Computed example of a mutant assay.
Amino acid sequence: MATILNLETSTKNCSVSIAKDGKLLCVVEEANEGFEHGEKLHQFIDWCVEGAGIQLANVDAICVSKGPGSYTGLRIGVSSAKGLAYGLDKKLLSINSLEILVQTQLNKGYDLIIPMIDARRMEVYTALYDGAGNKLTETEAKVIDETSFEELKGKKIVFVGDGAEKCAEILSFLDADFIQIFPSSKDMIHISNEKFSTLQFEDVAYFEPFYLKDFIAGKNKTEK
C-alpha cells in the first residue's frame, strides 16, 4: 500500500492531506477569498507532513486535482505537484475536481449526484454521476437557466460544490438538495489510493491541468 500526498487547489480552498493505506493522517486547508494558494500551498504541505509525522521524501506519490476550476489555482497546484514528483522521484496521480465532490455524497439515497464548481455568473463546471459515483456524462461548462436539467424531473438529486447554492432558486422545480462546499484533499484519499494500486500514473513531463475553458484575463478596475 502507499503513502500519498494529496493537493486540491481548484477553488478558493487550498487543501493538503496525507494518507497511508487509504487512511487520513493529516489535513491542512483554508478557503480564502483572496486565492492565496501561491503563498500558502507549500506552507500547508510542510504543516501536513509535520502533522502526519513523516518525511516528505517517504511519500510514495503526489496526487493533484487536475480541474476543472480556477485557472490560477490549478496552475499552482499542478506546478507544485509536478515539481515535487520530479524532485523527489515520486509517482504523479491526478483526479478530476468534480469526482472529489462526488465522494462526499456517495450512497446517500440519491438517484443522481451533480457536482458544480463555480465558473462565475450563472455558469458552472459540472457532470452527472449516479448515486454510486459512476460517471454518466462528460465534464462541461454549463450556463444554468430555467430549462436546465428539465429532463431530470422525478429524480432525487443532490447538487454539490461551490456552484450549487447560486443555482438553488432557479432549479427549485427539481426534487433536489443543494450543498455548498469546496473540494477537499481529504476526499481525494479513496480515489488516489485506488489509482496508485492500479498504476494509473501521469507523465510528469507532459501532464497539464484540465482547464476546460481558455483563460480570460479580467480588466483592471482602475483602467479606463
Rank of each mutant, 00 (worst) to 15 (best):
128 L>H: 06
16 V>M: 07
66 K>L: 14
73 G>E: 04
171 L>S: 06
75 R>G: 08
41 L>P: 08
68 P>G: 00
38 G>D: 05
107 N>S: 13
169 E>Y: 10
54 I>V: 13
182 F>A: 07
157 I>Y: 06
24 L>I: 09
116 M>I: 03
108 K>P: 13
204 V>L: 00
96 N>A: 03
16 V>Q: 04
94 S>D: 13
26 C>H: 09
204 V>F: 00
10 S>C: 12
182 F>R: 10
190 H>A: 15
64 V>T: 07
77 G>H: 07
110 Y>T: 10
143 V>F: 05
65 S>D: 07
46 D>S: 14
156 K>Y: 05
19 A>F: 05
50 E>R: 11
187 D>T: 12
207 F>M: 12
33 E>H: 03
173 F>R: 10
53 G>P: 05
40 K>M: 09
131 G>P: 12
122 M>Y: 11
160 V>C: 08
194 E>W: 14
1 M>A: 12
74 L>W: 01
96 N>I: 00
13 N>V: 04
212 L>I: 12
147 T>P: 01
49 V>S: 10
109 G>N: 10
92 L>H: 07
50 E>N: 09
60 D>T: 01
140 E>H: 02
20 K>E: 15
219 K>C: 09
90 K>E: 03
13 N>A: 08
87 G>E: 05
33 E>V: 06
142 K>H: 08
128 L>E: 09
141 A>P: 01
207 F>P: 04
136 L>F: 11
223 E>G: 06
64 V>C: 09
4 I>R: 04
1 M>L: 09
20 K>I: 07
151 E>M: 06
198 T>L: 07
63 C>E: 09
177 D>K: 12
163 G>N: 06
88 L>N: 05
44 F>G: 07
174 L>T: 10
106 L>K: 10
158 V>C: 07
9 T>D: 02
63 C>L: 04
200 Q>N: 15
131 G>W: 05
53 G>Q: 01
67 G>D: 02
104 T>M: 12
31 A>K: 13
80 S>R: 01
101 L>Q: 02
154 G>N: 13
215 F>Y: 15
184 S>I: 08
201 F>D: 11
116 M>P: 05
197 S>M: 14
212 L>P: 00
27 V>M: 13
210 F>H: 11
140 E>Y: 03
115 P>R: 03
111 D>R: 14
207 F>V: 07
1 M>W: 02
28 V>C: 14
81 A>I: 06
118 D>V: 03
133 G>T: 04
178 F>E: 02
195 K>E: 11
80 S>E: 01
212 L>Q: 01
13 N>E: 02
74 L>N: 04
132 A>I: 13
45 I>R: 12
190 H>I: 13
168 A>S: 14
55 Q>T: 04
174 L>W: 07
122 M>N: 14
116 M>C: 15
34 G>E: 13
148 S>H: 09
93 L>N: 07
48 C>T: 14
193 N>R: 08
219 K>G: 02
163 G>V: 03
86 Y>H: 12
169 E>G: 15
198 T>P: 05
76 I>Y: 07
171 L>P: 10
216 I>V: 15
162 D>A: 00
115 P>A: 01
51 G>N: 11
91 K>E: 11
